[in-house]
Design a protein around this nucleic acid. Sequence first.
DNA 1: AATATTTATTGCGTAAAACGCAACACAATG
DNA 2: CATTGTGTTGCGTTTTACGCAATAAATATT
Lengths: 312, 312
Amino acid sequence: MDLNALRVFERVAATGSFTAAAQHFHRAVSSVSRQIRGLEESVGQPLLYRHTRAVTLTEAGWRYYEEVRDILERLDMATEALNQPHAEPSGVLRINAPVAFGQRQIVPLLHRFQCRFPSIKAELQLNDRVVDPVREGHDITFRVGNLSDSSLVARQLAPMNYVVAASPGYLARHGTPETPEALSEHDCLIYQGELGRQRWYFQRGDAAKEAAYELDGSLASNDAESLLRAALLGQGLVMFPTWLIAEELSKGALVALLETWRGEVMPGRRELYVLTPERRLRALKVRAFMDYLFETVSPTPPWDRWQEELQS
Amino acid sequence: MDLNALRVFERVAATGSFTAAAQHFHRAVSSVSRQIRGLEESVGQPLLYRHTRAVTLTEAGWRYYEEVRDILERLDMATEALNQPHAEPSGVLRINAPVAFGQRQIVPLLHRFQCRFPSIKAELQLNDRVVDPVREGHDITFRVGNLSDSSLVARQLAPMNYVVAASPGYLARHGTPETPEALSEHDCLIYQGELGRQRWYFQRGDAAKEAAYELDGSLASNDAESLLRAALLGQGLVMFPTWLIAEELSKGALVALLETWRGEVMPGRRELYVLTPERRLRALKVRAFMDYLFETVSPTPPWDRWQEELQS
DNA sequence: AATATTTATTGCGTAAAACGCAACACAATG
DNA sequence: CATTGTGTTGCGTTTTACGCAATAAATATT
């Protein structure tokens, strides 16, 4: 019996897939297959049922998995606890985030973090579908809006702020809308995803409820990046989260509009969350990254600092 | 990090010796040395101080050892728990016993046990000095008399019965002593170990206390086997535990004497104990052997059945 | 119903790791 | 001071793990 085989088994059990476990450990699937086969021989019975496109745990496998998961965790913590107080974080940090947020905010953040701690390596997985962080083996997951996995430790990172914006060229040609009502006279570039066309909502400071505006324009798309490019070319107005267009706002490539109102793309407010599996919260690399992250967004996230920069 | 290295580390920590761990795992000392070095590199600091003729744990090593010991135990138990109800005991059973008892009683018992369970392998270590079963890595330890290790689970196996015996030839030439007092007219072969010459003690059924007899004969030795051989040759009388001479009594090569009295070689009574480390009590191989052992000695140990055999 | 695709298994050759032998270093023991 | 026991390290050999490629099996797609 081999510790490596146990780790492979844990990952196979968590994901239901030899392929996923192979990817996780950067190994060939055949290597995973042999590790599992060897483990089953050493414990004397099958731990997994093999199906066509997945594997599932046998009854014994399930019981063994629960034990092995805890044992591996405990071993890692015992090893971690040996680190001297000044030990530098090291190892592979696995991060998951929505695509656009990851590209624009996590990549530079992570870059600075890794400059500071050169022993850290990272695996950044970006996707917009809801993934299971435990199953995927992520150390840290960024999530927008609703949470649904109670085995994760969720911490609120920052509020999601939306802003309407247009290029200076567009505004020079078409004027600057001063109220949400004025938007109907403008070319609004609308996001149209699986849930249909987004409405824009506005709420003034003291109003009890945001008002919905069903707007239109020359372009609708399910690709935010395309809408952004069109806006930069002066085609129309967009409403996006500040973390998406903070750089363009800072550079003046886009101009924030209707700042007296708070904009949303659906009713209610949402927050940015960061999630970690409960057990891994104390790994040094995870703690270090979380500390760094929360230092970075305090008191104001970098993607919300463009307002301050424009004022100075 | 490797499971094998962790097991090696546990054994080194328990014994304080690379050499002992190497022997335990049937490996070269250099292999143990490298395993430990590799483990220290992977946890990032030394776990052992190297001295000239032993190693000791560092502070971190001690803390790690306590964790690793429990983790390995838990893993073994999780693996053990997977066994199906009808699984046959297998693996290496490590037994320690006093030399003579081991040779005469454990070897045949173990032989029958292994015939019944062919997947069992055994390592039988015999010595008369007091050893530390945890440190030595024994699964089962036989012990006579006093117990002093509270981390072991001790079960009483059987009372120690002593008997005076002589060969038929000796008795034909010198007559049969009918009382302890008559022994002074006989050639008593006395055990003389590190504690000096043994006195023989006798207690009649209803007497409150055993009486001591300081006897003499033509031979005194620290080697019980030699005294026994001399007795078989008709040289004199011996007093030995029944488990030592049960076979000779059964065959009539020696004749039990003074059976109305209970003989001892020191004041008070002693028991035979069998000890197992607390954690290993539930390993299938250990349980199976213990069950077999206690079945064998119930209601009467085989070394005390010669009385019944002579009567039938 | 046929075809394409995905996942896991296994033969085989290669690479990497573990091993043991032997020489050596060091300090305790007699 | 010589001997002895324990641990370290260089080096060659043995063993294990790996990846590639072919294959099997069943699901998804057309």
